[in-house]
């Protein structure tokens, strides 16, 4: 009897566990599912309100993807996004890693306060900053150039990255660096050989986050870049696939899907480390 009771309870708990997970998974993946279906749906199928929106009522089509690649500069936008993204991530890492480390280990009593101060700058919305920023961009003569984005984007990726990395560096016992310093290295040598390899998950978190922030950025790109050939995906797709009040939903969704796939794939490779990184940052930061 006891065993049977246990069994029923066990089944119920498993059911509740996986049921809850399934609801969350469905909720989280619904936008992607919608994006995927709409990308391959014929317009006639999409716009007929009598049709079930979750299935293909008519044969799937590649026409939206074809339109995106042949009638717009989508490939160029992808290249631009990748170009800006890679450079911004590199600049972010080069500046945020030493900054985060110094604030944690060498900042003394003020380190934490300065770290929070830096993070607060991240909270100032680009909608406020783009006007002064456009003056800066004009002064350095980078109007209508992708380099203006390379210059401006780190202003929001770096504060966030410093804050995130501070959480990671704080979690590394100082003993390790001190041991390395006694074992024959300078502080910089200990940092390179000891701190960086241990912080891989933190650095990876910064890479993914910064790249995602770059890919979804809209307002600076819209302000600083005018030529269509210099757009990033986040500006190019809505600009060229929305004509007045006519939305090319299939094309829009195809653009979003393709742009988000690389990040989704990278994210899935490192999901464990990424979550470890986020929670560590959350607890220790």
């Amino acid at each position: 009897m006891v065993e049977e009771k246990k069994g029923v309870k066990w089944i119920f708990l498993k059911f509740a566990h996986f049921g809850t997970l399934a609801i969350f998974a469905f909720f989280a993946s619904l936008p992607f599912l919608w994006m995927l279906i709409t990308t391959f749906k014929q317009d006639a199928d999409l716009y007929n309100r009598a049709n079930n929106p979750f299935i293909f009522n008519m044969a799937p089509t590649l026409s939206h993807i074809e339109y995106l690649f042949t009638e717009t500069q989508f490939v160029q936008w992808l290249i631009n996004t990748a170009f800006v993204g890679v450079l911004v991530v590199a600049i972010t890492l080069v500046l945020a890693i030493p900054a985060g480390y110094s604030l944690v280990r060498l900042g003394g009593r003020w380190g934490e306060a300065i770290g929070i101060g830096i993070f607060l700058t991240y909270l100032i919305a680009p909608t406020i900053l783009f006007i002064p920023m456009s003056r800066v961009v004009a002064t350095v003569g980078l109007q209508d150039s992708l380099w203006s984005l390379v210059l401006v984007f780190p202003s929001f990726t770096i504060p966030f990255a410093i804050w995130l990395l501070m959480g990671f560096f704080k979690a590394i016992p100082p003993d390790l660096e001190e041991a390395a310093m006694i074992d024959g290295y300078s502080r910089f040598g200990a940092f390179i050989r000891m701190v960086l390899p241990i912080s891989t998950s933190g650095i990876l978190t910064v890479v993914i986050f910064s790249f995602t922030l770059v890919v979804q950025e809209y307002i600076y790109t819209l302000t600083f870049v005018t030529a269509a050939s210099k757009y990033t995906v986040s500006v190019g797709v809505p600009t060229f696939l929305v004509h007045g009040d006519v939305y090319n939903w299939g094309g829009l969704m195809a653009g979003c899907l393709i742009a988000s796939l690389p990040i989704a794939i990278v994210y899935n490779f490192f999901v464990d480390r990424f979550i470890g990184g986020l929670t560590m940052g959350a607890v220790k930061g």
Binding site: D175, L176, A179, A180, I182, G184, Y185, S186, P197, I198
Partner: peptide, 28 residues
């Protein structure tokens, strides 16, 4: 600096380098 003093230290936490094998720890 510590590296120039010819001292070796064993910490309370042992401070073994977690990303290295024992061989690499000793060889460090």
């Amino acid at each position: 600096p510590p590296r120039a003093r010819g001292v070796a230290m064993v910490f309370q936490s042992y401070a073994l380098y977690p990303h290295m094998t024992i061989y690499k720890n000793i060889a460090f």
